[in-house]
Design a protein around this nucleic acid. Sequence first.
RNA 1: GGAGAGAUGGGUGAGUGGCUGAAACCAGCAGUUUGCUAAACUGCCGUACGGGUAACCGUACCGGGGGUUCGAAUCCCCCUCUCUCCGCCA
Length: 424
Amino acid sequence: MLNLRFIQENPELVVEKLKKKNFNAQQIVDEIIALYKKKNEIQAKGDQVKSEMNRISKEIGNLMREGKKSEADVAKDKTAELKESIKQLDEEFAKIDDQVFALQVQLPNIPAEIVPVGKTPEDNLIVARKDEIPVLPEDKLPHWELAKKYDIIDFELGVKLTGAGFPVYKGKGSILQRALINFFLTEAGKAGYLEVQPPLMVNEDSGFGTGQLPDKEGQMYHVTLDNLYLIPTAEVPVTNIYRDVILEVKDFPVKNCAYSACFRREAGSYGKDVRGLNRLHQFDKVEIVQVALPETSYERLDEMVAHVAGLVEKLELPYRILRLCGGDMSFTSALTYDFEVYSAAQEKWLEVSSVSNFESFQANRLKLRYRDEITKKPQIAHTLNGSALALPRIVAALLENNQTPEGIRIPKVLVPFCGFEMIN
RNA sequence: GGAGAGAUGGGUGAGUGGCUGAAACCAGCAGUUUGCUAAACUGCCGUACGGGUAACCGUACCGGGGGUUCGAAUCCCCCUCUCUCCGCCA
């Protein structure tokens, strides 16, 4: 959510910058400014009337204490009109306030200066690549076939228990999952992230704080009986730790990591792109989250990107890093880097991580602030997060790229976590 | 699920209709004293919106929403959450 004052003071800038996200903000911004002006007028008027009301009330109190009941009654007569006026102004104010808010939440975050112009994933900018594609035998298999061959992931069993997109990991498949989670958390810990285990369900306030609600309600599983949402990513509970918090400068940088299962409805996505592990309703992910000072948040973003790059390197996977173009970025992000690994049997790139700086967009909703050392006033902080990493597509690439006639080779770095070197 | 108690500023905790945006204490910040540390003393010390270059001023906020009243942290209603006991249970 963009700051109201900021919109009001920089309307042309907002409209201009949002064009990069292929978003025409002109009308919304115009309406916001008109309403904002009106809102201020009503507030000024209301505050004045309330001030008068408070003054009379105090006077009545004094008169009563002095026993001047008849004078107090005279004063009381004056209040009826003021009271009615306050009621009307309050109602009008609330109405406009709601209208402004409804418009405000429709505006996406402003993209950073270096975000490439573009509309589709083709316009994303490849900023780094390490893409020596492994040479696989003629009879190479996609991961869903390998999963069946070695009996490590059972998609049909998941359908029986729950439905499509809820696979059952078995034996070495299950151990591989556990090993990856442990590896990712260990690496994050080494990089200074404090590990947390968050709840897997969140309330509405949390959903709003990170931007899932109200716009993307259909993406989450909703437990209606208790009005809770299954988290689509640990970003939601972990970032919301800092909702309504005022940090001190000495608290920075704030770095948290968390493993969680993630739940996504993925309504409307079917077909060959969702085969096997490519797109699931439930999957595992280790997330890294940072709260940063505005002036250093882009340094923190670079640090996070470097951390994620280190992970895919250690897993010996071909990868590339994309700087997302305006049209492919999320609503809430100011700058996003996607990581893709190459899945050599499917012969396609799979997104395994998305690392973003949200600047003050989430923090505004979260009321996440820090106390400025000089002015001592609360200022909006910046939030960032990234996958480090999401498991299923990593597993898909590992299985496909490391298949050999003898079985599937486990990358060296994972062997101590797995306890075996081959899946066979 | 049943019964009861409660929700006040960073923390503890006072406050049953006006002099309370809120005592006191602790923590924190600035200063005085001090050879250093400690202690003592003095002052400051919530957030948001609006106005003002600023000092500051106005308004709102004592879990959330509504009501009574000239006036509500305080009285009434609804909701949420927390705690205690009982039941159930990993």
